[in-house]
């Protein structure tokens, strides 16, 4: 039942060309076009980890801060969650299915960026693979819980999109995604360290270049996951 639900949600995702383009097409485009520009095979600067990391972070942010809250708030607005609560299946399973599908898309996207970046463009694969996986899982979960809180508090689908946009741009800007943190002033980087996207990207880049992610970033991601996860569970309205 929950598998059928996730399968259905996945089909619905594939039927939104804009969503597929933004979450799978865009990171691929970023990694290929920037890769061709900078020729990573000969570049030894730390910025080499920026482009694939940024492509992944960009897509994760769209997935968690735009798509997830908008879809879930729309489901509530359209009475779909309410309709579910009249069936033997609790409406929370739809949330679960949606999060599972988003996680699967995030995983596939990350895999595509790493594999295409490496074999087609010549980026290195993440040197500290365990640290990278940890950064990916914690980072994705923390971003998803933030998206769930947006869905929980937004009065409508439209409002969820608006709030999501605001959080999205704040994270993209201060999190070192639009421009690498190497070029940002210290105070912005300090803010970025505590934002889910900033912590995720920095931890992934650290792992990519061979060092284990910093405890600060892991702690930030884990704390956000727990706090926002609980907040979403407590605040979520089904109608």
């Amino acid at each position: 039942m929950i598998i059928r639900m996730a399968f259905t949600e996945f089909k619905l995702y594939l039927r939104e060309p804009a969503s597929v383009a933004a979450t799978l097409g865009l990171p691929l485009l970023i990694v290929v076009s920037f890769g061709l520009l900078i020729n990573p095979g000969t570049d030894t600067s730390s910025l080499v980890t920026y482009f694939p990391g940024m492509a992944i972070a960009f897509s994760l942010a769209i997935l968690s801060l735009n798509l997830l809250p908008t879809i879930l708030a729309n489901y509530r607005e359209k009475g779909i969650l309410r309709r579910l609560s009249t069936t033997p299946v609790p409406p929370a399973s739809l949330l679960l299915a949606q999060v599972a599908v988003s996680f699967a898309v995030a995983l596939a996207m990350t895999l595509i960026v790493v594999v295409v970046g490496h074999f087609v463009i010549g980026f290195t694969v993440p040197a500290q693979l365990g640290g990278f996986l940890l950064a990916f899982v914690l980072g994705t979960l923390s971003l998803f819980t933030v998206g769930l809180v947006i869905a929980a508090i937004a009065p409508s689908g439209r409002a969820a999109t608006g709030i999501g946009m605001l959080v999205f741009f704040l994270n993209m800007f201060a999190g070192g995604v639009f421009t690498p943190r190497e070029t940002l002033p210290d105070f912005l980087n300090r803010i970025g360290d505590f934002l889910p996207l900033g912590a995720t990207l920095t931890a992934m880049r650290d792992a990519w270049s061979g060092s284990f992610p910093q405890p600060l970033h892991l702690l930030v991601m884990a704390t956000i996951t727990v706090v926002f996860g609980l907040a979403a569970a407590g605040l979520f309205r089904w109608e």
């Binding site: 259905t8 619905l12 039927r15 939104e16 489901y75 009475g79 779909i80 309709r83 009249t86």
Partner: peptide, 14 residues
């Protein structure tokens, strides 16, 4: 109990 709710919808692309 089978229910049809007032003003309930489904995802447009379902």
């Amino acid at each position: 109990i089978g229910v049809q709710l007032q003003e309930s919808q489904l995802p447009d692309r379902l």
